[in-house]
Design a protein around this nucleic acid. Sequence first.
DNA 1: CTCAATCCAGTTGTGCGCAACTTAATTACA
DNA 2: TGTAATTAAGTTGCGCACAACTGGATTGAG
Lengths: 167, 167
Amino acid sequence: MDEVRSATLERMTTPATDWLRLDQQICFSLNAASRAFGGVYRVVLKDLGLTYSQYLVLLVLWEHGELPVKKLGEHLRLDSGTLSPLLKRLEAAGLVRRERSARDERSVEVRLTEEGVALRERAVEVPRRISAATGLDLAEVQDLRARLDRLTAALDAYGTDPAPGPS
Amino acid sequence: MDEVRSATLERMTTPATDWLRLDQQICFSLNAASRAFGGVYRVVLKDLGLTYSQYLVLLVLWEHGELPVKKLGEHLRLDSGTLSPLLKRLEAAGLVRRERSARDERSVEVRLTEEGVALRERAVEVPRRISAATGLDLAEVQDLRARLDRLTAALDAYGTDPAPGPS
DNA sequence: CTCAATCCAGTTGTGCGCAACTTAATTACA
DNA sequence: TGTAATTAAGTTGCGCACAACTGGATTGAG
């Protein structure tokens, strides 16, 4: 985007102040959708006694089995500041056990309890109910996911790589 | 991942357990993108001394002028439980004033201070910097916004209107 | 007019997300 | 080998989001 000096041209390009309109902000739509999802998940997960974030942790554990906190965080884009108390709550709920790795005393392995494994049976229906609430078909979901993941990658690069190209 | 034996059936009906994979969850991509945005906004808004949510409140006030808390919440999809403490902080920062409406003593009018109005000048460049970080062009942004807004509407209807069709 | 229902802002309590920090263990290198 | 740098998990502090609730103002049905 170039700087427009001339007053005449300025009328033709959108005035900078219009970019400050709420309904122009992609991030707001994103944020709103994310929170709307939260509301639906809150209802759907109520029976299981889980929050959405706790559900995500269990998804990863159901898929990958025992994992150190670090790896869990890489899958979920969360750090120990978020995960430590969350895992403590999951442990208190009897769904998960944490134990120091023997191989590396810094690391803590997180694994499902019997109860945690068993919960998967009841969680199987969750994605279907969520999918129904979105009203999206598979192709739309995959397209949207791809776009969002690219967007996330671009945003992650900000600061790290302000000029993404051959230097 | 399982080897697919009976191609015809298995292809059409993905095993329910596969729906529990993290990378199938649209909400996770959404959530991740939203948080990635948060990181960029945190950097960009640091100079202004604002959080992203505070910035959104100011966007609405810059656009609409004085508003009661209720209306503010409707624009932002937030309730008083979130807005009250947030507005208190904005007031403490000297950007906003709150006063009981004379016409309706239940209502509280939120208006910008001189300082709050002045901050707009410095905020004008924010959308440009955010836009640069996303790497999206205008058409992509608008398409994505439209999709997300439709998704939000569908999710909002969940519970309220389980069968949205002509009756 | 009356009083019950509704509405608005605010408070409380819980959980998430993240920066900044601490502690302890491991690794690297001089 | 000894020590400095790095790494992992946890803690603290802050702000946001939301459910559930309170208290006071307004509205409306009778």
